[in-house]
Every structure is written in C-alpha cells, then in structure tokens.
C-alpha cells in the first residue's frame, strides 16, 4: 500500500516538474516570436515605453499597411518567392534524376559520385563566395536573381539527391522493371512509377529546399547590389540600417517574412521532420 502511495506521489511530483520544465521551455522558445507579433501591432512610440507594455495599449495595423503599400518592400517578397520557387523546381529536377541514377543504375565511378555528393556539403559558403564573386561577374550574372538561383542549388541539390536516392531505394525494383519489360523507357519508368510513389519524399525535399532558399543571406547580400534585386532577409537588414527606429515596421516585415516557411512547416510537419531526421542521420 505504502509503496503505491509513494509511487503515486512521486509520479505527481514528476508531472509537476515536467509541466514547469515545459513552461520554461515554451517561454524560452516562444516568447521572442510572441513579442515579435505583439510589437508589429503596436505603434512605434509604444515599443520603447519603459516599463514596456505587454499587450498593445493602442492596436494598429499601420506597420502592415505601410509594407503592403510600398512597392519597394513588396519587391523584396516577390524576389524571394521567385528565387525560392525556381530553386525548388530546378533542385527537384536535378535531384530526382540523380537519385534515380544512384538508386537504379550501376555505372563506373558510382562510389566517387556518391562521395562527392556527401562531401560538398562540408565546403563553407564563405569560402565559395570569393570565387563566386569572380565567376558571377564573368558570367554576367552579377546583381541578377540568377546568380542566387545557381548558387543556392549547390547547397540544395546534394540534400535532394540523398533524400531521393533513399526514397527510391524503398520502392521495390519490380515496379519499374515491369514498365521496362513492357517496352517502356527508363524515363517512363521514372515518371510513371517512381515519381508518383515517392511523392512524400518529393514534398519533403521541396519544402526543405524552399526554406533553405528563402532564408539564405550571405550570397544574397554579396552577389546582388541594386535594391530591386534584394530578397527579404537582406531587404529587412537594409531597412533596419536606414530607419533603425521603425521597430514596429521591422517586426511586421519579420512576421510577413516568416509566414511562408511557418505555413509550409505546419502543413508538411510530418514530412519535414522525417525528412530532416533522415537527412541528418543517414547523410
């Protein structure tokens, strides 16, 4: 009897401790994001009131209105979407085909190709930036969105290949062999059998690629120059440097700049998480 009672008590204590831990964790992880949201609907003068207000005393959507009516700021968003979507399309194209080759074909230097795909991920972006600068100027792509699309693909393709190879490996070979026996080409087997079967993997790779491209900062900062070619992460910093006291607008910009990835994440949470883990652990 007494052991059951102590066990019940210790379990209750465990539960209380757990909830305290979770609350502290949620405060640490979530409070900054909440503060961002709250600051974006406060007037700028209220942000640095001391003592600070938690909920806005004056509710205003001016910061959002200001962004949505500014062609310059909307351009940052348009650029980010263009670059991210182009990178997703091109990465999926290259990644699916390369994953197919690695999963279904034997060819000379296969081991070498595999090793290269894994090891390029270790090359620091800052090291690549210096030659990219020369290369992009030479290709006449400096200060264009193409410079970003091409350089981002270097980071996204290896991950896409690893993921797609892994997914294709889980699909029974008999399925695509059957297409070939019926006289179909290998391309048809890929398109009609493997791609539909690997859809969860493709979604996961697409979402991850979008996030990487949407969030990139270093190349966007260094390989573009004119304001009309800036992406959201760089654009926010530019505005920050110019109107460093417009905090509510900066926060509204940050909220809008985080929405695409947040939405992708909430929608495709499961694929995202399994993809990330698989990528990290298998890679």
């Amino acid at each position: 009897m007494s052991t059951i009672a102590t066990r019940g008590r210790s379990q209750r204590a465990q539960k209380v401790g757990l909830w305290i831990g979770l609350s502290l964790g949620a405060l640490f992880a979530g409070f900054p994001a909440l503060w961002m949201l709250l600051s974006s609907i406060k007037p700028n003068t209220e942000i640095f009131q001391y003592p600070p207000t938690f909920l806005p005393e004056t509710f205003t959507m001016d910061a959002y209105a200001g962004i949505l009516s500014s062609g310059e700021k909307l351009r940052f968003f348009a650029n980010s979407y263009t670059v991210a979507l182009a990178v997703v399309a091109l990465t999926l194209f290259a990644g699916i085909m390369a994953g197919y080759a690695l999963s279904r074909f034997q060819f000379p230097f296969k081991g070498l190709v595999n090793t290269v795909v894994i090891s390029v991920q270790a090359v620091p972006p800052i090291t690549l930036l210096i030659p990219y600068f020369g290369l992009v100027v030479w290709l006449k792509l400096y200060d264009t969105l193409w410079a970003l699309i091409l350089t981002y693909m270097v980071a996204t393709i290896p991950y896409a290949i690893l993921m797609m190879t892994g997914y294709f490996n889980t699909i029974p070979k008999e399925l695509d062999e059957a297409v070939k026996v019926d006289g179909g080409s290998s391309l048809r087997a890929l398109w009609q059998v493997l791609v539909p079967a690997a859809r969860p993997g493709i979604v996961s790779v697409g979402a991850y690629t979008f996030m990487v491209a949407w969030n990139e900062f270093l190349f966007a900062l260094s390989l573009t120059q004119s304001r009309s070619n800036r992406t959201v992460p760089v654009g926010i910093q530019l505005l920050m440097g110019e109107h460093s006291f417009q905090w509510s607008e900066m926060m509204a910009m940050s909220v809008l700049g985080s929405v695409p990835v947040l939405v992708l994440f909430l929608f495709f949470q499961r694929q995202f998480v399994s993809g990330m883990t698989a990528g990290a652990v298998k890679a």
């Binding site: 994001a33 961002m36 900062f217 992460p233 910093q237 920050m240 700049g257 985080s258 990835v261």
Partner: peptide, 9 residues
C-alpha cells in the same frame, strides 16, 4: 526564422 529576422528580433 531566418538568421536575419532572428538577429533583429
């Protein structure tokens, strides 16, 4: 959040 937003925040 992207790094640039993390830092501003």
């Amino acid at each position: 959040f992207t790094a640039s937003i993390v830092v501003i925040l």
